[in-house]
Deep mutational scan, measured.
Amino acid sequence: AEKTGIVNVSSSLNAREGASTSSKVIGSLSGNTKVTIVGEEGAFYKIEYKGSHGYVAKEYIKDIKDE
């Protein structure tokens, strides 16, 4: 099942092309942005936001229960 997560940073969080800190940054998400978690790979979540996919470090995403 898809989960919703909240970007848990004070400034912004980089979204990357792949599940690695050396992957190209494809965008950034500001704190408290809601994202859909579609998968996980190592220390990263694969997320969907406004129709695009990217990878973000798990430690900066807070899971919330689907309402």
Rank of each mutant, 00 (worst) to 15 (best):
V38G: 00
N8L: 09
E67M: 13
Y60M: 08
K24A: 09
A1C: 15
A15C: 15
G5P: 02
I64A: 07
S12C: 15
D66M: 14
K3Y: 10
S30C: 14
S23D: 05
E41N: 06
T36Y: 13
N32M: 11
S22T: 12
A19N: 05
K65W: 09
V7L: 06
Y49M: 07
G42K: 04
K58H: 01
Y60N: 06
G42Q: 02
V38E: 03
L29M: 05
L13I: 15
S12R: 13
N32I: 06
K46Q: 07
K24I: 07
K46E: 09
K50T: 04
S22E: 12
K34Y: 09
E17P: 04
G27C: 12
E40G: 02
S22H: 12
S20P: 04
I6P: 02
S10F: 08
Y55R: 00
Y55A: 01
S20K: 06
V56K: 00
E17W: 07
G51Y: 03
T21L: 14
G31A: 15
N14P: 15
K65E: 10
D63L: 15
G54Y: 12
V35D: 00
H53N: 05
H53C: 10
V25T: 06
I61C: 03
S11K: 12
K65N: 10
V56G: 00
K34R: 13
E40Q: 07
E41H: 07
K50N: 14
L29H: 01
D63A: 10
N14H: 14
V9N: 07
S30W: 09
S30I: 13
V38H: 04
V7K: 03
T33S: 10
I26V: 07
A43F: 08
S28Y: 12
K46D: 05
S10R: 12
N32W: 12
E40P: 01
K46N: 02
S23V: 03
K24M: 08
T4S: 10
A19G: 04
I64Y: 07
T36W: 12
V38N: 01
G5C: 09
S28H: 11
A15V: 15
G39Y: 03
G39A: 07
K3L: 10
T4P: 03
K50V: 05
I47K: 01
E67G: 12
T21K: 12
S30V: 13
I61E: 00
K34Q: 09
T33C: 11
E17Y: 07
I47E: 04
I37Y: 00
V35A: 01
N14D: 15
A57E: 15
V7C: 06
A19V: 07
E59K: 11
G18V: 06
S28L: 12
S11Q: 10
G54P: 01
L29C: 06
S12Q: 10
N14Y: 12
N8M: 12
L29W: 02
V25P: 05
G27N: 02
A43P: 13
I37P: 01
K50G: 12
A19L: 06
E48P: 01
S52Y: 10
V38W: 05
E2C: 15
H53L: 10
A1K: 14
D63Y: 10
G51P: 01
F44R: 00
L29D: 01
K58Y: 03
G27D: 02
K58L: 02
A19I: 08
E40K: 03
K3T: 07
A1I: 13
A43V: 07
S11A: 10
K62W: 08
T21G: 09
A15M: 15
G27T: 07
V56C: 04
I64L: 09
F44T: 01
F44G: 00
V35S: 00
G54T: 03
Y55M: 01
A43I: 10
D63S: 09
H53P: 05
K58G: 02
E41A: 07
L29A: 01
Y49L: 07
G42I: 00
K46V: 10
I26P: 01
A19K: 05
Y60S: 08
S23R: 03
L13A: 13
G54E: 01
A57T: 05
K62L: 11
R16C: 08
I47T: 02
V56T: 00
G42V: 01
I37L: 02
F44W: 14
E48M: 12
K46P: 04
G5T: 03
N14C: 15
G42F: 02
I6F: 10
Y55G: 00
G18Y: 13
E41G: 01
V9T: 11
T36N: 10
E40N: 04
S12P: 08
V35C: 06
V38A: 03
E2Q: 15
I64K: 03
S12A: 09
R16M: 15
A19M: 05
V38L: 13
I61G: 00
N8Y: 08
F44I: 01
K34D: 02
A19R: 05
H53E: 07
G42E: 06
